[in-house]
Design a protein around this nucleic acid. Structure first.
Length: 565
RNA sequence: CGGGGUGUGGCGCAGUCCGGUAGCGCAUCUGCCUUGGGAGCAGAGGGCCGGAGGUUCAAAUCCUCUCGCCCCGACCA
């Protein structure tokens, strides 16, 4: 492709609204343009790179035996009502009505649609397993789109759904996808960290996310330095310290005016924060619930939500708190509370002589002991693991890293096939529900993550497999005649099967080099002064900055070697 | 949705406090010149200053309302 005939609107300066490197560089290198918040136009160069990623995903999926579908983006509300998610998906699902007032959702995910499609076509165990996928646009009304295409309202995702006859089959499908995902990200030139994850509102059991370590990542990962434990902070568990102690004091009510937060309490009682029991009231699907954790810990609302099995979980209003504890906010505690459900974190039972709210304005109890002063009827892991906690598997310290989630695989189980009554006839001629798995790759986000991981101060550094072009030819010459000679080399490279971007513009060399650095194709071929003097063509490896001087006949063999083709 | 910021040619910004003919750099177009790291000279085009209303002889500037966008927090590939 001749540069002069292509469209690459590079920018010399950073756009003012881009804060992360990938977003900045995608704008500057002319890959995308912002249309509006969370919506991006892919310009030819960006689209070409995106297509390469899509092709890799498609190839690997097809190789694994998965079947490609193309689903409607407008999904009928009835489908969502059937699974029960019309009410649970929440405001991030775009809902629209047609002229007849029929309701639809703009597909944010396609479990229902695929379950429906497969149920209407599969009737026998002989047709299973099936892994159905598509590469298509997803719509999500994000609370806050940001970081360019990393979090946008509209994005391209590869989503796959496996249907197996039994758990063993699902396990196989899941493991296959696991290795397919590794291959996909490998080929994209991305180093990913697989971590254990929460399943969110998709439902299901085992779940793994593929993370790209990055400063701008929105996820926090906890990684064990000595064993292989890696988990999303949402999900991470940790080994509890064995605490021993004994009950020394009697339960005593203490006057504590205006002492409400854990910080206040630490000062007031001059005791460590772990001595306190933090009691937080929530409204879970309308029911008031108290969660009790030690004062040194943060409640993990995802864990709490999963434990309670509720759909909506929010902090209880002041009214609800007063109703349950007969005191204003800040003085809640488990002692003497009978009317509501109380869930205790696993560490609570190991506290001795703790301090808690007395369910009375301006009063706390000290010398509170579980078992004696309140009963632990229900306990669960309710707190967020943090850096420095003990690994649940080997006991060594966990460290924290930020990451971008580019892929997510999980075992869904029977949630959708049961809710939507999808049955097949098994070997014995009996109806049974298939068991599902679900596997997503954020395709557009992968592009951003690749850039996040492969750039320098001058611009992009494309991994070979997904670079929009293989080589960038910079031609520098004065006469028409010389231009023809450069064009010959361009033709030769094309004929040899390499996709070249030939900068034939009549600009100064400085501009061409700067644009070549910014666009960042893997190899830059300069044909200029040295070529006309001595026949030397210069090949620069964008990543290593290594320069090779080649005679014309050496050029194509070098390209073959460089690209391994 | 809460908190903070910002809207002025394609891009980056100044001008707003203190009202008085809309500016700078880059980019674009024409001509000359130049060609190994964002050249030079001469000329040209392009903006109802986010929108609506108000105050005023006069509004980018002051007032009211509104919309967009960005950042920090609660959702997710």
């Amino acid at each position: 492709m001749r540069y002069s005939r292509y469209l690459i609107p590079t920018m010399k300066e950073d756009p003012s609204d881009a804060v992360v490197s990938s977003h900045r560089l995608m704008m500057r290198a002319g890959l995308v343009r912002k249309e509006s918040a969370g919506m991006y136009v892919y310009l030819p160069l960006g689209h070409k790179a995106l297509r390469k990623i899509i092709n890799i995903v498609r190839e690997e999926m097809d190789n694994s035996g998965a079947l490609e579908f193309l689903m409607p983006e407008l999904t009928n509300a009835d489908l969502w009502k059937e699974s029960g998610r019309w009410n649970t998906m929440g405001p991030e699902m775009f809902r629209i009505k047609d002229r007849n007032n029929l309701e639809y959702a703009l597909g944010p995910t396609h479990e229902e649609a695929f379950t429906n499609a497969v149920r209407s076509t599969v009737t026998s165990y002989k047709e299973l397993p099936i892994n159905a996928y598509q590469i298509n646009t997803k719509f999500r009304d994000e609370i806050r789109p940001r970081f360019g295409v990393i979090r946008s309202k509209e994005f391209i995702m590869k989503d796959a759904y496996s249907f197996d006859v039994d758990e063993e089959g699902l396990d196989k499908s899941y493991q296959t996808m696991r290795s397919v995902y590794r291959k996909i990200f490998d080929r994209c030139g991305l180093a990913t960290i697989p971590v254990q994850a929460d399943t969110g509102n998709m439902g299901g059991s085992a779940s793994e996310e593929f993370m790209v370590a990055s400063e701008v990542g929105e996820e926090t990962l906890l990684i064990c330095e000595s064993c292989s434990y890696r988990a999303n902070q949402e999900k991470a568990v940790f080994k509890r310290e064995e605490k021993s102690g004994s009950i020394t004091g009697e339960l005593e009510k203490v006057h504590t005016p205006d002492v409400k937060t854990i910080d206040d309490l630490v000062k007031h009682f001059s005791a460590e924060s772990s001595k306190f029991l933090k009691s937080i009231l929530y409204t879970a699907d309308g029911e008031t619930v108290m969660a009790v954790v030690t004062g040194d810990r943060e409640i993990n609302e995802i864990k709490l939500k999963n434990h309670l099995g509720c759909v909506e979980l929010e902090l209880a209003s002041d009214d609800k708190i007063f109703e349950a504890t007969k005191s204003p906010v800040g003085f809640a505690g488990p002692v003497g509370i009978k009317n509501i459900r109380i869930v205790f974190d696993l560490s609570v039972k190991n506290t001795f002589d703790a301090i808690t709210g007395a369910n009375e304005k301006d009063y706390h109890y000290k010398g509170v002991n579980p078992g004696r002063d309140f009963e632990i009827k229900e306990e669960a892991d309710l707190v967020t693991a943090v850096e420095g906690d003990a690994c649940p598997e080997c006991g060594k310290k966990l460290s924290a890293t930020k990451g971008i989630e580019v892929g997510h695989i999980f075992k869904l189980g029977y949630k959708y096939t049961k809710a939507m009554n999808f049955t097949f006839l098994d070997k014995n001629g009996r109806p049974a529900n298939p068991i599902m798995g679900c596997y997503g790759v954020g395709v557009t986000r992968t592009l951003a993550a690749v850039i996040e991981q492969n750039h320098d101060e001058k611009g992009l550094m494309w991994p070979k497999e997904i670079a929009p072009f293989d080589v960038h030819i910079v031609g520098i010459c004065k006469t028409e005649e010389d231009e023809k000679k450069i064009a010959e080399i361009y033709e030769e490279i094309k004929k040899a099967g390499f996709d070249a971007l030939y900068d034939d513009r009549k600009n100064s060399p400085g501009i061409k080099f700067a644009d070549a650095d910014l666009i960042g194709l893997p190899l830059r071929i300069t044909v200029g002064k040295s070529f006309f003097d001595t026949g030397d063509i210069e090949a620069l490896d964008r990543k290593t900055k290594e320069i090779k001087r080649l005679q014309r006949k050496e050029l194509v063999p070098y390209l073959k070697e460089f690209f391994g083709r």
